[in-house]
């Protein structure tokens, strides 16, 4: 029983990781590097968009990602009674 609960917790954790790390990959490697030339044709004020992602945007998203993860995991811990 305990083992079953443990497995379910771990699976949900892995699901969160997969989603958050996909966003992590998208904003840095895809927007900031692989598609940078294409995105640079779009402008965000004085910034070219790809350049902005590479030097500013990706960093903001990273910070948000960690705090979202903290919230999700705190909730998950509570749900499974692992928050003590």
């Amino acid at each position: 029983m305990a083992l079953e609960k443990h497995k379910k917790y771990w699976r949900e954790n892995l699901k969160y990781l997969a989603i958050l790390l996909s966003i992590w990959f998208l904003v840095s490697y895809v927007f900031g590097i692989l598609l940078v030339t294409e995105l640079n044709t779009i402008r965000l004020g004085g910034f070219k968009l790809g350049f902005w992602f590479a030097q500013q945007g990706s960093i903001f998203v990273f910070v948000i990602l960690i705090f979202v993860y903290v919230r999700l995991m705190n909730k998950l811990d509570k749900k499974y009674g692992y928050d003590t």
Partner: peptide, 16 residues
Amino acid sequence: SVYLMGWTGGYVLLAL
């Protein structure tokens, strides 16, 4: 940009 993304993105890996 390699330094900017590289030296901050690592914290996402570290945290998760």
